[in-house]
């Protein structure tokens, strides 16, 4: 994950399982999960490897907050901004498979839903 070309994070609870991102993905690294989210949809899932960060799924997705796409992700270059907008620490992406992407900031694990609300500094 250190220097992945791309990475896609799915916010399971916002995904409606419409299948459009799966159809659109040019490298076929998205699929619909077997399990249901709380709304009763099968959410989209990232295979965990092979994303190029092209952003096609992002624009195919009708739900504003369901997908977040990172292009040229380099963990060492990123500083996570805390809610006050202050840069705190660097991040490590862990286990991006099966919609369980988590971010660790100096030992503190931040869940996926928080992850999508994070603000990043260059």
């Amino acid at each position: 994950m250190a220097n992945a070309r791309g990475f896609v994070a799915v916010n399971e609870e916002e995904c409606k399982g419409c299948d459009l991102c799966v159809t659109a993905c040019p490298v076929d690294v998205l699929h619909l999960a077997q399990h249901f989210n709380t709304h009763g949809y099968n959410p989209s899932e990232y295979d965990g490897d092979g994303c190029t960060g092209c952003g096609v799924c992002f624009y195919a997705c009708p739900e504003p907050g369901a997908l977040t796409v990172f292009k040229n992700w380099e963990e060492s270059r990123h500083k996570y901004l805390n809610p006050n907008g202050e840069g705190v620490t660097s991040l490590t992406l862990k286990d991006p498979i099966k919609g369980l992407a988590v971010i660790e900031a100096t030992g503190e694990i931040i869940a996926l839903s928080n992850f999508l609300n994070l603000k990043f500094a260059e």
Binding site: G53, G55, F58, P64, G65, L67, T68, V69, F70, K71, N72, W73, E74, R77, H78, L116, F120, E122
Partner: peptide, 10 residues
């Protein structure tokens, strides 16, 4: 290479 993030618009 700079990182680009496509996320929910402001």
């Amino acid at each position: 290479m700079s990182t680009k993030i496509l996320s929910k618009s402001e």
